[in-house]
Design a protein around this nucleic acid. Structure first.
Ligand SMILES: Nc1ncnc2c1ncn2[C@@H]1O[C@H](COP(=O)(O)OP(=O)(O)OP(=O)(O)O)[C@@H](O)[C@H]1O
Length: 698
DNA sequence: CGTTATGGGTTTTTT
DNA sequence: ACCCATAACG
């Protein structure tokens, strides 16, 4: 065969090529960071399509995050023009697809909507708030989610999760209420698919026939339910490949089990295991440092990972006074080298704040990934709730949310009385509202009538216009537009704009109920796509979200004990080695995102809950070999120079107007302040002799 | 029922 | 510091 000359195989090493070419039994690629796992899996797909005659419709590539799915699809498309029709989705989205295709076999309404975590929690709260305290409900909710991660139904082995006999009953009631709405929660997507395949051999056969080539990326983050799902999907003719790295397992909090990858070869007989041992991403120093850190974990498989690149620069470790200085120094790093592709990585979303503030102040372009997600904003959820009722009129959670927003005189009491008609209305909330009309107070009744008329009106339009127009009309006629415009005016928010964005997000949809349903699925299962950095934008991103990505320059911020590693506040609990090892893996993931340059920041104190709290350096820093480090400590001197102006200060000068301080230092006994004026010019002032004033930032 | 005051909790991480 | 849930009042 002239295989090795094929252009698809040209950019692969021997082990990678072997992995791409392997056929005839399950394949496990087990390899460290940056070893080309994703490259292999995408090439494998392209290879199958190009040379094995595999039909694109039969290929399912499954990932854990939306970003990974999007990226993989792009990579495949760039390799072959036969990629059209390949299914590249997250586990959850793939299961939603299967349930819509085949779910009617097990009594699932195939136009179900998907409840996100908040909606599902609301459902449970409504069920339990009389009898249980808030934190108890939270715990019970977590247990239910946990049960679904393990694929345990209420009549299953629930004692494994919660011994309390009441738990099984609560779980059962939750399922009943959820079933009454006809919607599914995240865990259901996997669990219900497993049950569907397990109990309906005809469906299983059809699905195995349809998806005969299955590939899973980041397999170390699969949970029990997903493992069982794979077993159900795996048939006699299935080509199954999984890739992963046990050192990068970072999702145990949502049920991920490293054992899935460690025992894959036992669960799937004749598995071919291939290891990749060359790292193509990072410089030698970065790789050495990251490997040294993760080697402190016990119970690893252990892997060889050799650098293919030069030593590179040392890793820069910088101690700073506080989190604002941290952000200012990041701004300075940007200024020094604005063209370098850069990610600022942190442990928790709330850390993004100081960066957003400082970067906005300095007009540094940035891209905030993930944070408070668009579709989770209150105003957007309100809009989605209203729209949901047109797809599923049994959606009680949506009804509760939107019936009195904007206010229609229907408060908690009235709402409860309306919902008493639900059984009679066969679960249809609008029918229930109609039935209750006579029993309502005057004010509530008129509100209810307005809402019913609105619903009728819009329902009549749904099939006559595009999805985007329909949403626009719904926002307008429901009064949501006016409501949020008013709020924006009063509070200086930008919620109306978000509603407009929702309208334009639906641009591509043709209109009608099915399109609306698809659009709504996207709002819970897919993050809105952001345009790929057209210009150079600094990416602000959590460590979890960086998995699979790479950047020339990586800045890991908040390298302090308690922040990274995040440490549970329960001091009485004994230190959890497992949890600490997962933090270390997460740190490893963050470090190994860097190609050229890795910078670590550790602040002495940090504003937390509006309080300054002192912190000590991350324990992981001590695990990095000294010879790979270049340490700068800027925490001791700054008080002594005592400049009145500091970088970032907003200033005003009588003759030159407003500007921002770029730098301020003591020169020959006087303070010299370098200012970038709003006019674009830069000037140096000596406040001793001129009228330079600090003003509050806008 | 709706608006406003107050106090407690909040920050893991994502589908 | 901020967001939300509950209490008190109109
Ligand atoms: N054989 C090769 N020759 C040159 N570069 C390669 C080779 N294989 C992979 N690379 C490059 O190495 C980098 C890492 O590859 P890839 O993202 O596939 O690794 P990975 O194993 O999935 O990493 P991680 O698990 O850390 O996300 C990419 O930039 C990729 O293009």
């Amino acid at each position: 065969m002239s295989d090795t000359n094929h252009p698809l195989l040209a950019n692969l090493n021997d082990a990678q090529r072997e992995a791409v070419l392997h056929t005839g039994s399950p394949l496990l690629i087990l390899a460290g960071a940056g070893s080309g796992k994703t490259r292999v899996i995408t090439t494998r797909i392209a290879w199958a399509l190009e040379t094995l005659g595999t039909r694109p419709q039969s290929v399912a590539a499954v990932t854990f995050t939306n970003k990974a799915a999007r990226e993989m699809e792009e990579r495949i498309t760039s390799m072959t023009d036969k990629a059209l029709g390949v299914t590249v989705r997250t586990f959850h989205s793939f299961c939603a697809l299967l349930l819509r295709m085949y779910g009617s076999a097990c009594g699932i309404n195939t136009s179900f909507l998907i409840y996100d975590e908040t909606d599902a929690m609301t459902l449970l709260k409504n069920l339990l708030k009389q009898q249980y305290a808030k934190n108890e409900i939270k715990q019970l909710f977590e247990d239910i989610m946990r049960a679904k991660d393990l694929c345990i139904a209420p009549d299953g082995d629930v004692e494994r999760i919660n011994r309390n006999p009441a738990f099984a009953e609560i779980y059962r009631q939750y399922e009943e209420r959820l079933a009454a709405t006809g919607n599914l929660d995240f865990g259901d997507l996997i669990m219900k698919t497993v049950f569907l395949l397990r109990e309906h051999s005809d469906v299983r056969a059809a699905v195995q026939m349809r998806f005969s080539t299955i590939l899973v990326d980041e397999y170390q983050d699969s949970n029990a339910a997903q493992f069982i799902l794979l077993k159900e999907l795996y048939g006699p003719g299935t080509s199954l490949s999984v890739v992963g790295d046990d050192d990068q397992s970072i999702y145990s909090f949502r049920g991920a089990e490293i054992s899935n990858i460690l025992t894959f070869h036992e669960s799937f007989p004749n598995t071919r295991v291939i290891r990749l041992e060359q790292n193509y991403r990072s410089t030698g120093r970065i790789l050495a440092a990251a490997s040294a850190v993760v080697s402190h974990n016990q119970g690893r498989l252990g892997k060889t990972l050799l650098s293919t690149r030069g030593e590179g620069n040392k890793i820069s470790l910088r101690f700073v006074k506080d989190n604002e200085t941290e952000a200012l120094q990041c701004a300075k790093l940007y200024d020094e080298n604005p063209d370098m592709e850069t990610a600022i990585i942190y442990r928790v979303n709330s850390q993004s704040r100081s960066f957003e503030e400082v970067f906005t102040r300095f007009s540094i372009p940035f891209l905030l990934v993930g944070a408070l997600r668009f579709y989770e904003r209150a105003e957007v959820k309100d809009a989605i709730a209203l729209l949901s009722l047109f797809v599923n009129p049994k959606d009680e959670i949506a009804f509760r949310r939107i019936i009195n927003t904007p206010v229609r005189g229907i408060g908690e009491k009235t709402l409860a009385s309306i919902l008493e008609y639900l059984p009679e209305a066969k679960g249809d909330v609008l029918e229930s509202l109609r039935l209750s009309l006579d029993s309502l107070s005057k004010r509530a009744r008129s509100g209810a009538q307005v809402f019913l008329a609105l619903y009728q009106d819009l329902a009549g339009q749904m099939d006559l216009t595009t999805t985007s127009m329909f949403i626009h009309e719904a926002m307008f006629k429901s009064g949501l537009y006016d409501f949020y415009r008013g709020q924006d005016k009063a509070e200086g928010t930008a919620k109306y704009q978000n509603l407009e964005e929702l309208v334009s997000a639906a641009q591509a949809f043709p209109g009608g109920k099915d399109a609306l349903a698809t659009f709504l699925e996207g709002t819970t299962l897919r993050a809105p796509e952001y345009e790929e950095p057209a210009g150079k934008r600094v990416m602000l991103i959590t460590a979890h979200n960086t998995k699979g990505l790479e950047f020339d320059r990586v800045i890991i911020t908040g390298c302090e004990d308690g922040v990274f590693p995040m440490i549970r506040t329960n001091m009485w609990e004994e230190p959890d080695r497992e949890a600490m090892e997962e933090e270390r893996r997460l740190f490893y993931v963050a470090m190994t995102r860097a190609r050229e340059q890795l910078i670590l920041f550790s602040a002495r104190r940090r504003l937390l809950f509006g309080r300054w709290s002192d912190s000590s350096p991350s324990r992981f820093l001590a695990e990095i070999p000294q010879e790979t480090l270049d340490i700068k400590d800027n925490t001791s001197k700054p008080e002594s120079m005592d400049t009145r102006f500091q970088r970032g200060d907003r200033v005003f000068h009588d003759d030159f107007g407003y500007g921002f301080v770029v730098e301020s230092s003591i020169k020959e006994g006087n303070e010299a302040v370098k200012v970038r004026l709003d006019s674009g010019r830069t000037a140096v002032f000596i406040p001793e002799y001129t009228s330079l004033m600090k003003v509050e930032g806008e």
